[in-house]
């Protein structure tokens, strides 16, 4: 099968499954990209997720980089279109008919029921990244520090904390071969 179409297909599926946003679809993204298709290994997935954290806008723009790894710039475009077009089209269509459901008690049930499901999926997303990203004492310290920073200090730009984590890694880990691909 043509790899470009394969990228388009995988990310289109993820797009439709992305109920609750990017973090909710993270475990499934990793399962498909790393385990099913072997496009990336664990460490590359973690690294690319990290790249998504340091740029503005939705973190899941990192799908562009995954596509780029598979088939270059065409793959990048396929991943982008696949991940954003189907969900975008659904939202567009739904917003035009949504007002008909104004006041339906089921709308409230839908929101209340989906809210904990989404939180569960976000927690699973955190776990899936943590399984490769938490490796050694320093990574635990960085994760706790950023957690405390984001959770306790309200007015702080999270991207700065993520970049700070990168600087700490650079300063303390660069001699150790941490994160190096096995050669």
């Amino acid at each position: 099968m043509n790899e470009n179409l394969s990228v388009l297909g995988v990310f289109s599926l993820l797009s439709i499954l992305a109920v609750g946003g990017g973090a909710a679809v993270l475990p499934e993204t990793k399962a498909l990209v790393v385990e099913t298709h072997h496009w990336l290994n664990d460490d590359q997935f973690r690294d690319i997720y990290g790249l998504g954290q340091v740029v503005p806008g939705p973190n899941m723009l990192m799908v562009i980089v995954i596509g780029y790894h598979v088939t270059g710039f065409v793959g990048a475009l396929m991943a982008f279109l696949g991940f954003f077009l189907p969900a975008g089209a659904i939202s567009w269509a739904a917003s035009r008919v949504w007002d008909h459901f104004e006041g339906s008690p089921w709308r409230r049930a839908l929101q209340q029921g989906l809210a904990p499901l989404v939180v569960g999926l976000m927690a699973s997303g955190t776990i899936s990244i943590a399984r490769t990203a938490i490796d050694g004492r320093l990574t635990v310290v960085i994760a706790f520090a950023v957690f405390a920073g984001v959770y306790c200090v309200k007015k702080i730009n999270p991207a700065l904390l993520v970049l700070g984590g990168g600087l700490v890694g650079l300063a303390l880990l660069s001699g150790t071969g941490a994160g190096m691909p096995p050669s």
């Binding site: 997720y49 927690a123 990574t139 920073g149 994160g179």
Partner: peptide, 20 residues
């Protein structure tokens, strides 16, 4: 790679904070 290990760890902290 060393920088990205730090970024990945920071991302875990951020994701857990946002989830909570």
């Amino acid at each position: 790679n060393a920088a990205l290990v730090g970024v990945g760890a920071a991302a875990v902290g951020m994701l857990s904070a946002v989830t909570l």
